[in-house]
Design a binder for these strands. Sequence first.
DNA 1: CATGAATGAGTATTCATTCAT
DNA 2: CATGAATGAATACTCATTCAT
Lengths: 213, 213, 213, 213
Amino acid sequence: MMRRIAQVSNSPSMSRRADPIAPRKTPRQARAQATYAAVLQAAAHILTEQGRGALTTNRIAERAGVSIGSLYQYFPSKEAILADLLRGMRREMLADIEAAAAACGGLNLRALTEALIRASVRHHAQAPDLARVLEQVELELPGDPETARIEAQLRDLLAAALADRGVPGPTVAAQDLAAITKGITDEAARAGETDLDFVIARAVRAVHGYLGL
Amino acid sequence: MMRRIAQVSNSPSMSRRADPIAPRKTPRQARAQATYAAVLQAAAHILTEQGRGALTTNRIAERAGVSIGSLYQYFPSKEAILADLLRGMRREMLADIEAAAAACGGLNLRALTEALIRASVRHHAQAPDLARVLEQVELELPGDPETARIEAQLRDLLAAALADRGVPGPTVAAQDLAAITKGITDEAARAGETDLDFVIARAVRAVHGYLGL
Amino acid sequence: MMRRIAQVSNSPSMSRRADPIAPRKTPRQARAQATYAAVLQAAAHILTEQGRGALTTNRIAERAGVSIGSLYQYFPSKEAILADLLRGMRREMLADIEAAAAACGGLNLRALTEALIRASVRHHAQAPDLARVLEQVELELPGDPETARIEAQLRDLLAAALADRGVPGPTVAAQDLAAITKGITDEAARAGETDLDFVIARAVRAVHGYLGL
Amino acid sequence: MMRRIAQVSNSPSMSRRADPIAPRKTPRQARAQATYAAVLQAAAHILTEQGRGALTTNRIAERAGVSIGSLYQYFPSKEAILADLLRGMRREMLADIEAAAAACGGLNLRALTEALIRASVRHHAQAPDLARVLEQVELELPGDPETARIEAQLRDLLAAALADRGVPGPTVAAQDLAAITKGITDEAARAGETDLDFVIARAVRAVHGYLGL
DNA sequence: CATGAATGAGTATTCATTCAT
DNA sequence: CATGAATGAATACTCATTCAT
């Protein structure tokens, strides 16, 4: 699978002081923007290459070519950096899936699910290690409302699309569809597979079978 | 899903001094056996109740009612404890699946896959948090040959069973079957589902669809 | 006890570059004066409301509505701000005591001491927290000559007044008079007392007793 | 004034885990006892010689000839060390004052107050800097119940003794007696005085005057 | 063998201060 | 002059591991 490292284009909008996870302040000047992005980039790199255990704030700052003090100008804690990466990943995923769904407006269930799975696998395949780590991290992180909102939107989008096509129990079906796709993709990545289309085909077969198509 | 905490009856067979993950020495006497098991028990408890971040060797020793020195008599490092837990979990899983497969000797593909999925979901459901954490841990741990061997056995067992019933590409199919089951089970656990049979039914539907049954 | 927050009208007279405690430069323009005063105000507020541990230069600047850079235009260091506050407090105190002493030109010892104690307690009571913190700070601060001069003036003023009325050992007596007043006032503030006149009465009784009146 | 550095014989009795100020665990072995005492000794030294700003945990450990890890075996935080020193000082003070009071069982008010003042000044004079710093620190520290209890005992002891001798408003009088003594002693220490008897005489004069003797 | 005291490298985070824009 | 981004030494505290008793 091809790799493209990170989703670093998050644009924090408000300066929320009390929240330990919200970004600390909005970078206004160009230099500040660069620092902000560099920190996220560096964190993503370290996570994918060395794993969560190796993610220390000093290491992030060093890799970002930035002082530890600068890092803390923009992120109130290490967890805030992780939360930001996760948020960015979810935002991208939602955008991809929304685009795919929009492009399938009038299509039947077969075509729709295939398109969604294709988008999903492609997305996961870009940075499978990062995705896996961030999903692990999500379980320990104090929930970020923005992230929760995006995830809810994703679930609803999927469930609505299935409901439109007359799938019974669309909520559970949406969950299982996502779970099947994720399961097959992760395991394939772990096994070192690189042929995306093959992975997609198998996920599609499982989902279509699950839906009785 | 019901919970049953731990798989603590691992009995390491050889004393391998250089290996940082292999158990340090075989406890032969009763008291030693008890200490050994208590450490694993304690580690499993802490992992499920407080998460990986809370797992410290001192805490394990305290919870096990053992001195930190004694802990290090039996395990050369914290990672060795985790590796031991993982090994135990895999051993159990292999045993369960082997039993299920043996009981299905002459059965057709439908019945076989259902039995296997049932065993697998049941297994995961016993201690889903522990399983999840240990699987995360596995990615960072230096591979333990014993664990690798068990996993290979599991894959081969599954692949062989599928091959026997004429499934094409049995190795990939085995991987996907496991991935689908794991994906649906994990996501169900995360969503807080407790109706095991419902989860099993959905996994079976997906797998049967995948296999074209 | 009533509270009035700060003594912020210090007007530094000379530009002494090498001294780490002397104000950095004389603000001549109106805006500069305002900035200078705002910084002192902000520092006093933070000290009284949140204590010395919360006094950071960035926080001072923020509260003063001034950039951190501007703060350092006028004060060479955080200690300089504290020294300036202390100086201001001592100046006020000297002014109050001088006024009281002047008003008592021909009075006898009883009346004089009572007037001085009254002025002193009143002064302390305006901002007891700030006074206490600044006195703590004084012990750690490299001595500021201006402040030292004011304190010497105070001591001399008191000693002279006592000497004029025939008190033997006027220097020691002056020191003790101040110590008694400060001791009783501080302890009263700490105990949460609010009746200034009661505090004054007790200090007067002790001092008069001490002086054999 | 003579100096004798520290009150290091505190003997923590119970292991109270949640309290951020209570000692962390009771040192059982001789080596542990030594470490515990060395930390307190070192902290007292640094406080008196370099002031509170210089009191860092690493510095304490270094001066104590102990690793930073050992320090944290016995004290859960830096504040706990300060609280322990304060507690020790209060314990000593209470013991001294109790002894003095007991020795004055049937004495009249003049003799009693003189004895108490003598004890108090002597106590303060042993380590006046340490006493001052610890009293400052007390204001910021989360209150330790043990310390509060001792201080209450001290106040009550004094008030009762005064009440016994017919002093009106014995509680306020006790507070003022202590305040006067402390005020004169501190200021004398600050002025560099070394003649304890002279200090005592002046405090006695003020207190006797205050009490109308 | 068991104990638990001791170790110290490593971690997240703060804050006084500088300097390019 | 004003701004605020950047700096990095310093701080409190943790935890895997060792070793004397």
